[in-house]
Design a protein around this nucleic acid. Sequence first.
DNA 1: TTAATGCGCAACAAAAAGGTTGCGTATTAA
DNA 2: TTAATACGCAACCTTTTTGTTGCGCATTAA
Lengths: 115, 115
Amino acid sequence: MSRRSSSEALKIQQHADIFAALGDPVRLTLVAKLVGGKPHSISELTEGTKITRQAVTKHLRVLEDVGVVESAKNGRENLYELNTKPFESLQIYLDVIAKQWDQSLQNLKAFVETE
Amino acid sequence: MSRRSSSEALKIQQHADIFAALGDPVRLTLVAKLVGGKPHSISELTEGTKITRQAVTKHLRVLEDVGVVESAKNGRENLYELNTKPFESLQIYLDVIAKQWDQSLQNLKAFVETE
DNA sequence: TTAATGCGCAACAAAAAGGTTGCGTATTAA
DNA sequence: TTAATACGCAACCTTTTTGTTGCGCATTAA
């Protein structure tokens, strides 16, 4: 019981972190640019924005920390691409809430782990 | 063209706001408590938390500002309940991203408006 | 009518977020 | 080999977020 409760609290934290990562227009725009699957360098992702490369780097790090993007160095470039798995995880969460399915929320941990 | 672009930027902002509202463990827990449809007062929602009623009030206001919850006064109580519409809106967003469906992202505005 | 409950508002403080500048180091291009 | 490009790191600043305390005011219960 208390094990399960703490386990769910952890899930809440994890999901909150992903929501928070997406909760910024700059980062959501970065995600949009990466949709399609083609990797982009930091410089490319900075083009068209009104902020500096360093600021973009910080945003990418936030996204990477929650697993929404992944990076790989290629020469002097650092290429970022989307990882869609976290989004699928959020979909389950939202589905349960949108349907007000009380019991499912309590079993969310099992849901996610057997996904 | 530029009209459409600015219109999409607005959509991004709106969605970012909702993501941000959910991007906090306290608020996500509040949402979880409201799942099931039964309205709860601020005092009820404060029970079991480690923060003050005033802090909970602030969190509820953040959720209400993006339409995730709605409140109605009842005597000396202020009852909050879930509004699931914003969650459906996010689901569309996440679906497009999870499927890396490039074209859909560009048409997202139309998608949402005809939903 | 007196207490207790449920809230709202405002001031304040600490911490986190978002952004900039400056500088140094690889890597690629001329 | 010299320049230009692409980054990373660190220091710093400003704004926002998150939380508290201390009121005061309705509303309900005793």
